[in-house]
Structure formats: structure tokens, C-alpha cells
Deep mutational scan, measured.
Amino acid sequence: MQIFVKTLTGKTITLEVEPSDTIENVKAKIQDKEGIPPDQQRLIFNGKQLEDGRTLSDYNIQKDSTLHLVLR
């Protein structure tokens, strides 16, 4: 499925993911596309910070959902 990740600069990254993917996996995909190390990434969905060990389906993230990427 496709999800979107919006950065603070207003750029939107499109990712191909599975609901069973962990947040860690998603961060690795963002690193592949953008070169941002996962330990600098914080992903936010519906105002909640997403934890590495959880999956997209844990957070009820579905296709065409938009996550927000904050760098630390």
C-alpha cells in the first residue's frame, strides 16, 4: 500500500509499505529515499509519536495515510 510522509519543509515522500511493516522498517525506507538516519527521525500520526517496535496496523495506518516526519 502507499503512504505519504510529510516533512517540515513541506516536501511529501511517497512510500510503498505493508500494514505489517514496523515503524523501524518505515524509517529505513525514508533513509533509503532521503538519506536521513533513522535515529534522527520521529514519525507522528494523528498527533501520536510512533514507536519503532510497533507496526503500521497497530496504529491503524491505512493506505494513503499521511505521517509527519520531525527531525531531532
Rank of each mutant, 00 (worst) to 15 (best):
M1S: 11
M1I: 12
M1D: 08
Q2K: 06
Q2P: 15
I3F: 01
I3K: 00
I3Y: 00
F4K: 12
F4I: 11
F4P: 03
F4G: 10
V5E: 00
V5L: 14
V5M: 12
V5F: 09
K6N: 08
K6M: 10
K6I: 09
K6Y: 06
K6G: 05
K6S: 08
T7F: 15
T7S: 07
T7M: 07
L8K: 09
L8W: 11
L8G: 05
L8N: 13
L8P: 15
L8Y: 08
L8Q: 14
T9W: 02
T9Q: 11
T9A: 04
T9K: 07
T9D: 10
G10W: 13
G10L: 11
G10N: 05
G10S: 07
G10H: 09
K11R: 02
T12R: 07
T12S: 03
T12H: 13
T12A: 07
I13V: 14
I13M: 12
I13F: 07
T14Q: 08
T14M: 12
L15D: 00
L15K: 00
E16P: 03
E16N: 15
E16M: 14
E16I: 07
E16T: 12
V17N: 06
V17P: 03
V17H: 07
V17E: 01
V17Y: 09
V17W: 02
V17L: 07
V17T: 13
P19Y: 05
P19R: 12
P19L: 13
P19K: 04
S20D: 09
S20T: 12
D21P: 01
D21I: 03
D21S: 08
D21Q: 03
T22F: 10
T22E: 12
T22D: 05
T22A: 05
T22N: 13
I23H: 05
I23Q: 05
I23N: 04
I23G: 15
I23W: 01
I23T: 11
I23R: 01
E24W: 02
E24N: 14
N25A: 07
N25L: 09
N25Q: 06
N25F: 02
N25M: 14
V26R: 00
V26F: 13
V26K: 00
V26W: 01
V26N: 00
V26G: 00
V26T: 11
K27W: 05
K27F: 14
K27H: 02
K27T: 03
K27R: 10
K27P: 00
K27S: 07
K27Q: 14
K27N: 02
K27G: 01
A28W: 10
A28S: 12
A28R: 11
A28M: 05
A28G: 10
A28T: 12
K29Q: 14
K29E: 06
K29L: 09
I30Q: 00
I30G: 01
I30A: 05
I30E: 00
I30R: 00
I30N: 01
I30V: 03
Q31P: 02
Q31S: 08
Q31F: 11
D32R: 04
D32T: 08
D32Y: 02
D32E: 08
K33A: 09
K33G: 05
K33M: 10
K33W: 14
K33E: 09
E34Y: 08
E34K: 02
E34D: 02
E34I: 03
E34L: 08
G35A: 04
G35K: 05
G35V: 05
G35P: 05
G35N: 02
G35L: 11
I36T: 06
I36W: 08
I36N: 08
I36F: 06
I36Q: 03
I36M: 06
P37Y: 03
P37A: 05
P37N: 07
P37T: 14
P37F: 08
P38Q: 08
P38E: 10
P38L: 05
P38A: 09
P38F: 10
D39R: 04
D39N: 02
D39F: 05
Q40S: 05
Q40Y: 02
Q40P: 02
Q40I: 14
Q41Y: 04
Q41F: 06
Q41K: 06
Q41G: 09
Q41N: 04
Q41A: 15
R42S: 15
R42F: 10
R42H: 15
R42A: 11
R42G: 07
R42Q: 15
L43K: 00
L43R: 00
L43T: 01
L43M: 07
L43E: 00
I44N: 06
I44V: 05
I44R: 04
F45M: 15
F45A: 11
F45W: 10
F45Q: 09
F45S: 05
F45V: 09
F45H: 03
F45E: 02
F45N: 03
N46A: 11
N46T: 05
N46Q: 07
G47Y: 11
G47T: 13
G47W: 08
G47M: 13
K48Y: 04
K48L: 04
K48V: 06
K48D: 09
Q49G: 11
Q49M: 11
Q49P: 09
Q49K: 10
Q49L: 14
L50Y: 01
L50G: 01
L50V: 07
L50I: 13
L50D: 00
E51K: 06
E51D: 13
E51V: 10
E51T: 06
E51S: 02
D52L: 07
D52E: 14
D52Q: 12
G53F: 11
G53N: 11
G53W: 05
R54M: 11
R54E: 13
R54W: 15
T55K: 14
T55Y: 13
T55Q: 10
L56T: 15
L56A: 15
L56N: 01
S57T: 07
S57L: 10
S57H: 08
S57G: 14
S57R: 14
S57Y: 06
D58E: 13
D58K: 07
D58N: 08
D58P: 01
D58W: 10
D58R: 15
Y59D: 02
Y59F: 15
N60A: 10
N60V: 07
N60L: 04
N60R: 06
N60K: 04
I61G: 00
I61P: 01
I61T: 02
I61S: 01
I61L: 02
I61N: 00
I61Q: 00
I61R: 00
Q62D: 09
Q62I: 14
K63S: 12
K63N: 03
K63E: 10
D64G: 10
D64M: 07
D64T: 11
S65I: 03
S65H: 05
S65T: 10
S65R: 02
S65A: 08
T66V: 05
T66E: 04
T66W: 12
T66R: 09
L67W: 01
L67K: 01
L67D: 01
L67F: 03
L67Y: 01
L67Q: 01
L67E: 01
L67A: 01
L67H: 01
H68P: 01
H68K: 02
H68W: 08
H68G: 05
H68D: 09
L69T: 01
L69A: 02
V70Q: 06
V70S: 03
V70N: 03
L71Y: 15
L71P: 07
L71G: 14
L71E: 06
L71H: 05
L71F: 06
L71V: 12
L71M: 05
R72H: 06
R72Y: 14
R72V: 03
R72M: 08
R72D: 14
R72W: 06
